[in-house]
Design a binder for these strands. Sequence first.
DNA 1: CAAATAGTGTCTCTAAGACAATATCAC
DNA 2: GTGATATTGTCTTAGAGACACTATTTG
Lengths: 275, 275
Amino acid sequence: MNNNMSKEEELFLKNYRIEDYERPSVTVDIASFSVREQEVDNYRQDDEKNLCILLVKRGQYPYKDCWALPGGFLKKGESVEECAFREIEEETHVKPVSLMSIGSFSATGRDPRGWIISNAFVSVISESSVKAIGDDDASDAKWFRVSFTKDGDDNVLELRNGDIYIKSILRETKCRFGRSEFEIKDSGNLAFDHASIISTALTVLRSCGENFDFLFDFLPEKFTLTDLQRVQETILNVSILPANFRRKISGYVEETDEATSGAGHRPAKLFTRKK
Amino acid sequence: MNNNMSKEEELFLKNYRIEDYERPSVTVDIASFSVREQEVDNYRQDDEKNLCILLVKRGQYPYKDCWALPGGFLKKGESVEECAFREIEEETHVKPVSLMSIGSFSATGRDPRGWIISNAFVSVISESSVKAIGDDDASDAKWFRVSFTKDGDDNVLELRNGDIYIKSILRETKCRFGRSEFEIKDSGNLAFDHASIISTALTVLRSCGENFDFLFDFLPEKFTLTDLQRVQETILNVSILPANFRRKISGYVEETDEATSGAGHRPAKLFTRKK
DNA sequence: CAAATAGTGTCTCTAAGACAATATCAC
DNA sequence: GTGATATTGTCTTAGAGACACTATTTG
């Protein structure tokens, strides 16, 4: 802070009328990702892992009944990060593990209510927090399996939960340093410019997927190395040979004396994150 | 956009009074970096390269006469990126090559004028644009050589331009994915929380320094490989063996038929960025 | 024992780092 | 020629990828 404040400065501040300037409303929107299991009918086989995003169904205008990212207006006295944590807990009762800013979305006309800019975040929800929110129909918050593919020059974002299917078509407009931006060609059933925010979030997520430190946030404190590998494979959409993954991860994890059991095959040791 | 708008929705929007909610003022602050040469007395030797940041001297309260990042209030009808480009050109007459969002700074009390949140950017100014702003004393915008070091648990940010010396002490509070956050212990002569923004910007810059695509923005269209190497060395604060740098960069550049001359030693071929 | 996953050993290949040697200019 | 940088060649080493093999559980 400015410690030696002069009389002149005090006077300036006393007369400063912030209301004289036009201001935008400021919101926060959070793209929350988790890696969730989907059951496989073979009792011996492990469950399939899917990258999922958390959306809420809008109960009011604008975009009533459309699906949207959790978020809301910034309140006085909180930072955007605090707002992001608050909003996601209020709307979905899920506690995010980590939060990462992916920039402001501030194009004119992005919100029909007026001049509203949004601070967008990626958040990671761990497997254990995920269990807190079920798939019961009563809830307005649901996890959607994510698919993000290229179709010629277009990008296709597909979100699925049971019978609910959302398809958005976008076009990449900028790509630098692991963060792309997208123009919406067809929003599908997504509110505002959220198709664009989700797409950018996915590119950020993928660029973080190489980073081992990032992967731990998706899992509980104790996990198997195969689980950790599946998380990376799911985020990066690649498949990795177990021997090589284990060699690379070995410096980041510590063995515990616990193990899984009852899985229909050899049990796996549980590990924790090192340091 | 929402195409099939119902009567009900039209009514909702007509009655929506955005003024009913309290809103913050929104600013944009830009940490502009360039790699500048400093003359060496030996006529044969190449000039030294330094990482520099562009600051402006504040002409009014608050923080009058302190140095600050160029920036200003977001205007209606522009995006934060457009605002960043506009502000930096208005205040410094320099045109940035690229812009990268590094998040919002929104802690309460960060601005004595009231509830003001800032969208911070890193921008890169190319060597050619740098020449547009001299070191004449008439200008309120100046380039400062940057040094950012550790002293025990503290981080020390030192900025120098001729006789002007600014020293800030900070403490790292968070570090994830190449972006650290800092708490200011002593702001030195820097306005607002700009010491913190600059420190975060430096960590982002360093994490981008490995990326070859990023380096080109610091140089004119045609450059020598040694210049490119110096840019990376300056940003990452390391020294690289020329043979190895050339091998790694070779896929990213194309030879031209031009070369430097008059440097007191073997001339260097000029290259351009590939594709 | 069969099916599935858990976990290890090792060969190959690539890319990074180190270092040595040669080339070319201005004075 | 001398002193500086420019540019190339190649040896060594660390790490990634591929693949083969062994281990251990449950039904």
